[in-house]
Structure formats: structure tokens, C-alpha cells
């Protein structure tokens, strides 16, 4: 209920998308990238969402978009609001929020390295964060195939077998039956 009221108040100020009520104390809302900063400042200063829980990205490869999720927490009212910002996958850049929460700089460095989303002006954004000497597309993107990369890059010890769970279980339960025979 409280979430609905908050949404109504916010909606009057900013062009927000639909509200997704996940739980009594957790909701997600989509908003355009241009209004993110104002909304966050409003939420932080007027609505008491003072704690940045996380900042992360989801790769919607099929739709050609990255979803950035800014999860804010209001401790007094014990509720969380997730702000979803959709940005285009190619030439992905986003305005940083490291001046609102200094700790966001770390998240932005990770996103830059793992997804290739640029946050111009964020501190130490150019430096390598986790990987060292990475020479492929950013690894958390959906089109990066980690198994293929691992097989090409690293020597493997022969003898590892992988069972497809479904075929394996069928053979276990109905021995003798050919796995392809359904």
C-alpha cells in the first residue's frame, strides 16, 4: 500500500513506467535515463531512500538493451524500490551517480569492465578492476560464451565427462532403453 502511495507521488513529478509490486516491501519501476538523477535525488532527500543497496545490469540480448537496476532502501519504513533504466546495448553509456553515493563508483567500475557500460567521469573507471589483461568482449554479456573461451584458453585434463541430466536420469531409471527413443 505504502508503495502505491509513493508511486503516485513520484508519478506526479516524473514520467515513470508501470510499478511492479514484487513484495509488500519491494517494488520495481522503470524510468527514462534522463530522469534518473532527479528521481534518485528526490528519493534520497525527500523520501528517505538513503541507502544504495546495489547497482547492477541485466543483459536483455534479444531486445538489444541493458537494464540497469538501482536498488534503494528506506530503512525507516523498511522498504526497497528498484529503479530500472533501459539503455541501448550498442554504445552503452550512462550518467554516473558516484557523486550522490561515493560507493557507486565501485559498482560502475565493475559494470564498465563486466558489461562494457561506460560511465564517463566516474573515478578510476579506466583502470582494470577484476580482470587482468582481458582481451575478449566483456564477460557478463550474454553473447560471451564462457565454456568456449575456457576450452580455447586453458589446457584441460582429459577424462572429464559431462552427463546431460535428462538423458542420464533416463538411462538410470530405464536401463536398456535408447536415450534418444524417448
Amino acid at each position: 500500500m505504502a508503495m502505491k502511495e509513493l508511486y503516485a507521488r513520484l508519478k506526479a513529478l516524473y514520467p515513470l513506467g508501470e510499478l511492479t509490486d514484487q513484495r509488500r516491501d519491494l517494488a520495481f519501476v522503470t524510468l527514462p535515463a534522463a530522469h534518473l538523477r532527479d528521481t534518485i535525488l528526490h528519493l534520497r532527500d525527500k523520501e528517505g531512500f538513503t541507502h544504495l543497496v546495489l547497482l547492477t545490469a541485466v543483459d536483455w540480448l534479444e531486445e538489444g538493451q541493458f537494464q540497469l537496476t538501482y536498488l534503494l532502501n528506506n530503512r525507516q519504513r523498511a522498504c526497497d524500490l528498484g529503479l530500472r533504466v533501459m539503455i541501448s546495448r550498442d554504445a552503452a553509456t550512462m550518467e554516473g551517480i558516484h557523486d550522490i553515493w561515493p560507493t557507486a563508483a565501485t559498482y560502475q567500475r565493475e559494470l564498465r569492465e563486466m558489461f562494457g557500460i561506460d560511465f564517463p567521469g566516474s573515478p578510476r573507471i579506466e583502470e582494470e578492476f577484476i580482470l587482468e589483461g582481458w582481451n575478449d568482449i566483456p564477460p557478463y554479456r550474454r553473447d560471451f560464451d564462457t565454456l568456449k573461451y575456457a576450452q580455447e584458453a586453458y589446457a584441460e585434463r582429459p577424462g572429464r565427462v559431462t552427463h546431460d541430466p535428462e538423458t542420464h536420469m533416463r538411462l538410470q531409471m530405464y536401463p536398456g532403453q535408447h536415450p534418444a527413443g524417448k
Binding site: Q22, R23, L26, T69, L71, G82
Partner: peptide, 12 residues
Amino acid sequence: VLHWKIPRGETY
């Protein structure tokens, strides 16, 4: 668990 599909959604 072999055919476990979960509808679209997100949570924390």
C-alpha cells in the same frame, strides 16, 4: 528439477 522453469520476474 530437470524441467524447472520460472516465469519472468525479478526480486531481491
